[in-house]
Design a protein around this nucleic acid. Structure first.
Lengths: 357, 357
DNA sequence: CGGAAATGGGAAAGCGCTATCCCACTTCCG
DNA sequence: CGGAAGTGGGATAGCGCTTTCCCATTTCCG
């Protein structure tokens, strides 16, 4: 029986990764074991002698060493990553949130990966699955979810699978299925807006907004109703369309063409985009927003202060919401399950002058 | 000599990761080797028999298996990740680019990680180093870099280290140090704008823009000069400030207070933000933009079409720029070193009516 | 002063996956 | 019909890092 040496090759430093110093290199250079090097570089609880500590630190500096996050992630079973799921990043609402998230992540030394779902549930699910493969520390889900679609269920299941395996998930809209959430206080914000415009003398509001199946929409409308009602005002009509500029324009046109708009003294849009679209529609029909009818929006996007007349709106500290959600996900140890509602602030501007008469 | 069995523990499925099926599980369930399972799930070039292939696929489905990207990344020496470095994500310019990048990344089945640098070089460098630890396939750097700062050099060195170890880096502004770039054709876009307003009868432009050390600023100003000159016009004055809304407001005020503005018939801002700020400053002084003086911007942010008067500007297909940059980084095999300039389009609006007289 | 309790260091077992080697078996052909 | 190619599968060596275990020294104290 021929005893044949099984001489396996040793491919050393030949992969694409070549050029990056590894922990092993650092340990060798410092003349300590791998374990010690790791302990020093990770502020582990295990103590390391002053002498060795310095040697490692110096070696690391000299070799320009930097941790291979993938390797670390595998060894630890979790990557120093925070995943953010938004329907679109090219939207001031989400990008403001993302900004806050990025700040918090940076402060925690964590990387942000962002998945854009383009409001496509299929895509959203696919992204979430891919993201999960990263084994991130937490997943932040933004974008108003429709209450109970089949896809929403799949999404929730996926998310729950994630939390079950040790991850943390937080919603940036409504709290769903026992998972924590940080979100704008739409109802109270809208209520305050309702009170504010009622105080200015407005009594009959025309509401143009998105689909009632969006929680955000429902909350804002309800809050507005309450606020107006507290001073004897009311919502005289509601017109729904897409939750964007075009939807604002279209629903406004419908209100104008049917003549119903004459019955309202203030136009309350579900968000600033719709308000801006509506103002264009009003002008197109010779109605001057701010003079002939008051207009309000929601969110206080940058444009709100730049249009003429400047738009009255409710500002939510979106970056802060993002930051807090990220903090919540990254700090502490218990799975956050609380529902944090962040209050908004009514910003009165020229589009709502005190009502004449 | 006591022969004592070194019974090492076998911690199986006890880490935080528990709950996620591994490739080993799939292979076991399908009754094939790990190698075969991997081959099937990765469309490797090695052929796998139909029978086995199906068994693996089924097992994977049944176990709801999904690749652990960290592990894959480590084995392959590179993660399926595209990193995007921007100075701020809460800025329509960058978020539009990010949107395009996200689209391309999704199409390539790659994850996007995004680092916000807050225009802080220290922070930028730190982010880049952290990002490199991920061993991403490519890094996209956006944000106009100042020509030759010490930090820019460090950044470039870091980037070069990245490309040297097999990564790909692309700039979304100017091409630097032999690395590829995809960016808006600022000069030609500005030239076209210059020609367009000159055609409308304007001859003396007041330029308010950012610091001349920003390449974007320099290019736009130069293009404008060329365009105007081709029809006998010229830049009558240049006022610099921060490249944002406030900077626009302030520089406009200076022009007004010194009376110099009377010498210009058109105000060309370095970007739309500055234009909007300047319009406010004009109105504050009783000068009506569009009527008393024409105004132009750059980039065509959403607000541009919503302000009154609507703003004439140059639109760049930012999302497309992002998409192309990402495609370039993700496709092909050679390190892209080309410099792709994406042309813009002049959008004439009410802020630039044909000149009277 | 002898054994118990710290203290600090090293060896090495994985983490989950890829890819190289090796091998048994067929199929081809001169 | 014998050996050269070709096929498809399995074993297994890492990838770079964390984290047990285990062990040699010291330090403590009754």
């Amino acid at each position: 029986m021929p005893v044949q040496g099984s001489g396996r090759r040793k491919r050393k430093r030949t992969r694409a990764t070549s050029g990056n110093a590894t922990l092993t290199d650092v340990a060798a250079r410092a003349g300590v074991s791998l374990a010690t090097a790791s302990r020093v570089l990770n502020e582990s609880d295990r103590k390391v002698g002053q002498e060795h500590r310095e040697r490692v630190l110096r070696a690391a500096r000299e070799l320009d060493y930097r941790t291979d996050l993938s390797a670390q992630a595998m060894a630890r079973g979790m990557a120093p990553v925070l995943a953010l799921l938004v329907s679109s990043i090219d939207d001031p609402y989400f990008s403001a949130i993302a900004e806050g998230v990025a700040q918090s992540a940076h402060a925690h030394g964590v990387i942000v990966t962002i998945a854009v779902t383009a409001r496509d549930s299929e895509w959203e699910l696919a992204s979430l699955r891919l993201i999960r493969g990263q084994r991130p520390r937490a997943i932040l889900v933004s974008g108003s979810r429709v209450s109970h679609s089949p896809h929403a269920d799949a999404l929730l299941a996926e998310l729950r699978g994630f939390t079950d395996s040790g991850g943390r998930a937080i919603f940036l809209s409504q709290p769903v299925g026992g998972l924590g959430a940080v979100h704008p206080a739409n109802t109270s914000g809208a209520r305050e807006l309702g009170v504010a415009i009622a105080n200015l003398g407005y009594r009959r509001a025309a509401v143009i907004t998105g689909s009632e199946s969006l929680l955000t929409v429902a909350e804002r409308t309800e809050g507005l109703r309450q606020g107006l009602a507290s001073l004897g005002g009311e919502i005289a009509m509601v017109e729904s369309d897409t939750f964007d500029r075009l939807g604002g324009y279209r629903s406004m046109r419908r209100l104008i063409e049917s003549g119903r708009i004459a019955d309202a003294d203030v136009l309350c849009a579900g968000n600033d985009f719709m308000a801006v679209g509506a103002m264009t529609a009003l002008r197109d029909s010779g109605i001057e927003p701010g003079r002939d009818i008051a207009v309000t929006g929601f969110n206080d996007i940058a444009t709100a202060a730049d249009v003429t007349p400047q738009l009255t709106t409710v500002r939510f500290p979106l970056a802060e919401i993002g930051r807090r959600a990220a903090d919540l996900a990254l700090d502490g140890t218990a799975l956050p399950t609380e529902d944090i509602s962040v209050p908004g602030e009514v910003i009165l501007r020229a589009s709502c002058p005190p009502r004449r008469g």
